[in-house]
Structure formats: C-alpha cells, structure tokens
Design a protein around this nucleic acid. Sequence first.
DNA 1: CTTAGTTGCTTAACTTAATTAAGTAATCTT
DNA 2: AAGATTACTTAATTAAGTTAAGCAACTAAG
Lengths: 383, 383
Amino acid sequence: MGRHNKRALLDRMLRLGTASRADLAKSLGLSQPTVGRIADALIEHGVFEEADEAAQNGSEHAKMGRPGRMLRLAQSKPRFLGLQLGLGETYLSPLPLCLPEENEWRVRFRTPATAKEWSQKLRKAAAQLPQKKFWGILVSVPGLVDERTGEILYSPNLRWTAGTAFSAAIREVWGDPVILLQEERILALGHHSANPGGEDFLLVDFGEGVGSAVLISGKLYAHPLPISGELGHTPVMGNQRRCGCGSVGCLETLASTRALLDSFAAAHPKSGKTWADFSELVAVRGIEPWLAKTLDAMGAGIAGALNVLGLRRVVITGTVTELPPAVFAYLTEVIVRGTLWARFGELKVEKAPRRRKAGLVAAGIDRLIVPDEASETAVISRI
Amino acid sequence: MGRHNKRALLDRMLRLGTASRADLAKSLGLSQPTVGRIADALIEHGVFEEADEAAQNGSEHAKMGRPGRMLRLAQSKPRFLGLQLGLGETYLSPLPLCLPEENEWRVRFRTPATAKEWSQKLRKAAAQLPQKKFWGILVSVPGLVDERTGEILYSPNLRWTAGTAFSAAIREVWGDPVILLQEERILALGHHSANPGGEDFLLVDFGEGVGSAVLISGKLYAHPLPISGELGHTPVMGNQRRCGCGSVGCLETLASTRALLDSFAAAHPKSGKTWADFSELVAVRGIEPWLAKTLDAMGAGIAGALNVLGLRRVVITGTVTELPPAVFAYLTEVIVRGTLWARFGELKVEKAPRRRKAGLVAAGIDRLIVPDEASETAVISRI
DNA sequence: CTTAGTTGCTTAACTTAATTAAGTAATCTT
DNA sequence: AAGATTACTTAATTAAGTTAAGCAACTAAG
C-alpha cells in the first residue's frame, strides 16, 4: 500500500473526525477501491474503527441511497503516552488517536534536577497509569532537540537532559518507542489539527523562551539541522543583554517571560513582581516605552521571518497572549508594518491557546503509524 | 514514466555533466532497466545526447569491463532563450541544456521606460538571433514576481512591467512559453548547479535591493506566497529611512548599492561618489562606524533567517563581495555571532559570483522538460 | 407492496512503472 | 584465446493504482 496515500487518508480523517470510505475517496480524489483497501488495512491495524450508528445521522446532507458505514480514528483505547517536559513540572497523559481534550493531564510531578530522580518519579508515575503498553511515548521538549536521534542538545535549566540519557531513562520504564519533539513544532501541529483547513502559518510561542515553527500544506517545514525556528536567538540591534546561549542581544533576553518581568521590575522597582502585577499595570497605564521597544523587537523578528518564508499568517501562543488586548494589538501593528506582503494583501495575526496534546497525537500518527522511509525527510518543491 | 524519477535523472545529469546509464542507475539507486528506459525517452525527446568518445576516457576510474556509452544533456543546440531584465540593461542569450559560460550575453540593450519601446527593442533583438524557436523563454526578473501566473507584482524603477503586460509582450515576439523567475531564486539555483553536492544554503544577494532564496535538498524552498526571501524588507530597529515599498526602516534602505553609496557620500561629502571611490576608502581606512552598523544590520537579518530556517550555510553574492576582504570578514563575524547553530557546530559563510545563466537553465529544465503536475507545488516534510 | 433511483462498498480486470533475473555485448587481463 | 568484469537489454514479476461492473441498502413514488 503506498504509504503516501495511507498518510493522506490519516490526515484527512484527523481533519474530518468521522467519515465513510466514500467520503474519504471523494475528498482525496482517489478511487473507492483504493480507499477501501487502505481503510481495511488501517482497521485491521487498530487505527480506524467503525463509528456507532449515532454518528451516521450526525452530519449527513443527502439522505438517499445506501448510507455509508462511518469510520473514525480508534478512540476507544489510548495508543500513545503523551509526556510534556516543563521546566517546573512534568505532565503525563495517555492519548487516544482522536483529537483529545487539552489541559487535563493524568499525572503531574515536579521536574527534578537530576537524571536519577527523574527515573524514580517516572517509575512512580507509570505505576499510576492503568495501561502499561503503548505504540509510542511522545515527548514535548523545550529547547533544542535532534528529533532524528532523540537527543536533547540544549535545554535551559534542564542541563541533565542533554545527550541521549533522557530518552534512555524513558525507554527503561516503558519499552515502547520514544519520540522527542520540539515544543513549538508540537504546538504548530496541534494548532493545525484543531483548526484544520487554514492557510499556511508561522507559529510563534512566547514562554520560557521564544520559539517558532512553520506549517506549510499541512506539514511541518523540514529543517536540515536539528535547530530551526529559533526566532528567540535572533540578535536585536542595540540590545546588550547576555543570553543563555552564549551570545549577546538575543530577542529572547527581551521577550521571554522572565525577561519581560525583569524589564518590568526595572521600570517599576516599587511594584509587585508577578505576571499578574505586570498585566495589571499594563491594563492601567497602557504600553510604556520600554514595553513598546520590546514589542518592536518581537514584531521585527516575526516580520523578518514572514518576509523570508513568504507567509501571511502568524499564530501567536503563550504568555504574551495573556496580557491586555492593547499589547496584542500593538504587536500586530508592528508585524504588519514590517511585512512586505501587507502592502499587497492582507496579513493575518492570530492568537491561540497551546494545543500540546493535539500536536502530540498528530505527530504520533505521522511518525508511528505510517512506516518510516528514510528518503522521505526531504523538503521538495517545484520552482 | 514516473516524472519523479525523470526529474531525478535530469537533476543528476545536470550535476554530473556526463554519465553512462549505469552511472546514473548506481548514483540514483534505481535499477538499470528503469534508467535505461527513461534515458531512451529523454534521448528521443532531444534532452540527452550521446557524448563523443573523448568524454568516455575523461573521468573513468576502473578500466575494466565493457565501457559505458556516455550520455550528457544535449548541448549541440540552444533550447532556451535566457533573458535577464536589469534596471539599466537587458541581456539575451540562447542557452543550451548544459552548464553555460557566464557573463557572455549574446544581445544587450538599454532597458527602456515604456512597454511600447520594450516591444520594439525586443523585436530588434530577436532579429539578431539565428534561432527563432525555443522550448521556452526564461526571464530573470528583479523585484516581486508571481512565478505561477507570470505576473510582475512590483519592480522598482520598472513600473511599466507590472501586471501581465510584460509576459504578453515577450509572447508576441516568440510564441514559446514564457517563464518569469525571481532573480535571487535563479541565483540560488545557479549556484547549486555550478557547485553541486554542497549542503543546503541560504543565498543572499546584494544589489539594487537585498533578496534571498533558500535551497534545500537541491530544490528551492516553495513559498506559499508570490513573495518570499524578502530579507531586504525586514525592519531594522532604529533605522528611519523610507523604503520604496512604503514602509520605514527596511534593511534595503541601508544595504542596497544605492543606500551604501548614499551613506558613504554622507560620511565623506568631499570624496568621489562612485563605488570604486567607496571601495578604495574602505581599503585604506578600514570599516568605519557607519559601515559597521550597516553590516551589523545585514548580519542580524541573515542570522535571523538562518536561525528560523535551520540552516548553517550562507552564500553571499553581489556588490558586497566586491569590497575589500575586511568587509566580508566583518560580515561573517556578525553572522556567526548571531547564529545559534554556531554555538554547536560550524557555520559556513561563502561569497560567490552570480550564476544567472546556470540558474536559468536549471529552472528551464525543471519547469519545461518535466511535465507539469498541479499538485506538485507543495512543500512536504515528515516531522 | 413493488419498483425505480441513488448511493456505498466490493470484486475483477487492466494499467503503469517499478523491480529482479537472466542473457548478450564489449572491453581488459592473463 | 579464455576468463573476468562491467554495460546494456529483454522478459517476467510485483506494487499500487485505475476503471467497470455488480451487489447491498436505503429513499421516494406509484
């Protein structure tokens, strides 16, 4: 079976939620026999399942002829284990193949500071889960990850994870395949799964750092290096702050959560030091010059990426979206000013919640269900 | 015949120059019968031709067994007409399928200021060429081009070319297919053709403007919009110069040839005003603060693109490469400082000549010889 | 209730483009 | 001249799609 079509089928199913063989055939432009064969194989494999009668009546239009037997991604049983490695806490949740509910993780614990403690906590967490066997363990990792080798190159404040020890520790608890995925890439996939059919976009996430990922034609942009989307380490002219990466002036030293709070504290030594204090002050006083400068830098970085990549849609996630609307409005304006396309057409700047679980599932389907072909990694394009 | 393999074969031939069927099969990992069939079809079509005996002895290593019948891209007859639209002058040259000599254009004339004059000059130029019929007219265009529709969106100082009138004028002179291609994308293809086998890279060209293109796995990065690689319109913090695009502070207003000369003239009101004067002064005095700032901005923009795209190789072409070595060295240093990958591995910054003809030929082969499939335009990637 | 019309799914035969296997051709080595 | 080695060709096989045709299951209408 051509894995190309298999992949397309899975993709469409993730988008449609539930569909008959005929729907899939029509929507993919394939012949019914082909779709039938692939669908049968996927059911056999436990990826698709027959949906109940209720779904049949759900979204139909023409009620003539033989009704289709509706299929969907098998959601009766968790197939993946999702794992979100955070600087502060670690979250775990079994994930079925369908689009999962966000923000409800089954188990959580404080991320420890050594590999040994990590192993212990992980074992304890595993004991709390009823299911012991998964198709794969999908891990969202902040920082720099080589997704091909499963090696963490660099993660701020989580130095002990560097190298392959981290993957190995997980593999000792569950024997299943471990797949490390860079956080922002997961977010981009998740946003696409949750809002299918939209245009290609650049996702920019503001959090402990500033990262980005590009989604084109439903697929992540394939970078040649293990490092990509590192918008946060673009140098900002005139900025002299030292960055954890060893350089000076990185955008991240202005725009990360930590950096914003530092700037806030410097500007208002007598105020509170929390994010809530910061947010409140912005709501009252509006955008002060230091914040405007920071947003200018963010916007310039994003606009630069859009210009180079030829995109006209940005999705912003993370802490910046939690500030008063004026902040997002200002940022949007800066981006529009800096983007060439905005002089010819419309530029879309959106804010969105983080969709980690959805992203993990999409990644799991892509990586684990469709068998791997070494040569498929390339980015191909006609001129 | 799978156009995919046909494309691969052409690609390899462009790279190898001359090769036997067996060489191609081995190098592509295809079976000999497959390669044989495709090669026969390409010979039939006039794309490949049998090379003379001389070539056989050229690059051989193991001199045992039956010698292969060497093939190469048909170079006996021009197949394309290359056309370079410049702000000052327009160049024309018939192009065979092989890698052509650069810098020798058959016909040239001053680029006129109206569509009507353009038509007249083009007709005159056509009369000077012995060959009247081509597989296609390949046009390198500065500025913004929609390569799919053949429409020029915006070209500084060549306003009359906007819209489809330009393509139409060419089509009136030769009936053959007209293909417009954005200048920097052509340069990237050309550099790749002339230096095959290298790593993925970002090409940045400095000239009337500042443009870039990305080449990954031998293919140009496929942008969703007609605009991409527009590094020159990234806003530079603190820069207040007005740009022709309607925005303020674009990199181009500092880094284009014109802008550099303006800055030079402002810093040295009493010196000469030519590029040679500028170059000479830099050679004598080194990099003055205003130039350092400009190079900082260039480097930051380039580094940002590399970080986002996940690349570790930049090729610089254009006027900046003609300045004293210190300039390129300074720029290299700035790029390295701003690139995250440079903290983990090596970053390559190269300067190179412009390879327009080679790029046009590569583009022509890609666009005209391998039959078009609408759905092939996407950028695909595994996670 | 019967019959016709519509739509879904499956089976069978065919098409395309690759493969492997086996044979023939041309050259060098000994 | 015989054998080794490599290049190319031909024939059979495989993989993955297609179209065509038929049965299945439902609605609508006489």
